[in-house]
Design a protein around this nucleic acid. Sequence first.
DNA 1: CGCCGAGTTGAACTGAATCAAGAAACGTGG
DNA 2: CCACGTTTCTTGATTCAGTTCAACTCGGCG
Lengths: 192, 192
Amino acid sequence: MKLSKYLQNIVSFPDDELEDIVSYFERETVYKNVPLVKGGQVCSKLYLVEKGVGRSYYLKEDGKEITQWFFVEGQFMSSIESFFQQNPSLYYLEMLEDSVLYSITRENLDLLFARYHNMEKLGRLLSTEMLMRVVNKLNAIQFQTARERYDYMLNEYPNIVNRVPLGNIASYLGMTQETLSRIRKAESRNKS
Amino acid sequence: MKLSKYLQNIVSFPDDELEDIVSYFERETVYKNVPLVKGGQVCSKLYLVEKGVGRSYYLKEDGKEITQWFFVEGQFMSSIESFFQQNPSLYYLEMLEDSVLYSITRENLDLLFARYHNMEKLGRLLSTEMLMRVVNKLNAIQFQTARERYDYMLNEYPNIVNRVPLGNIASYLGMTQETLSRIRKAESRNKS
DNA sequence: CGCCGAGTTGAACTGAATCAAGAAACGTGG
DNA sequence: CCACGTTTCTTGATTCAGTTCAACTCGGCG
């Protein structure tokens, strides 16, 4: 889907604004498992996923990767804290498939926020939407058992299961890979 | 602190805008343990705490109260999901002390968002700030032990410990009251 | 003085983590 | 297209942090 369509779906921009806004984005092809941002770097760009799946993760002291978020087609992707506060990122950002992204720098985004009231609104809406997603995940993690969390995930990211490694999903859900494997097994037994 | 000061600290408004904006807020006195919003109702107002502490919580099937957030002086308070999406709230909202709040309705807020670019910016910034807070809490809950979560809390809400019942804090941190009690005991032993 | 809610302590239990092996699937080069 | 090594996934046995349940302490207040 085209970038302008994605934006129009959130806020309806006059054509001239939209054209100007779109001109500040770049279209990039990014390959599987190549880090877009590494831990410790400042994340200077916001991405929109046109095609592919990405994730953000951080490295624990013991070297284990913990997935924080997945980003699928149509979602904005970034190391949120780092991008908004312009401090070093705790997270790595990478795509799990060869992908196509639109990107915009923080400076240009700020410029567009200042230039267009509509753009500021888009920023507010995106930020609110992300807020809702985080709150939902928090509720899932805080109050649900491992099994319920898996169901939450199936709902939040339908069929991502087939696109990303099990271990990534497990750490996203705050459980070990072994536990997730057992849950799945039980789940499939229930269905058949 | 005055409402206009709180707003100015976030975005600098011209005097005339600020005056108009402030006129849409009401100042209310709210008493301890009286629900502002009940589960199932739509939360129609956003509050700013001038004086007092509030919390949002939800009732589990078994009747137990789980605290979702605390709100202290200078923070905006609401049943976020309900307020932004205007659907029935999962959460109850109440103050834990007799308090003074400023409130604005969703309609008036939308009106101000549309009227002033600056106000839209304020909305975006608040939303981003809240997003950061939720992400932090999520990280604490997902990756830290009960003891570490307690430290996170002391940092996030300094000295709230003396203002709210232990059970509320425990459920906020995703642990039982007994566990929190034991952690505290160990903590105080370490210090002395 | 005795009740009541808030907090503490103890003992048994449990869901999920950890540790340790295997089995399956995957891709790369011959 | 197959053989090989690597990564991903499954399974089992053991351990542990935190829950649950139940009794007890403490301070305030009628």
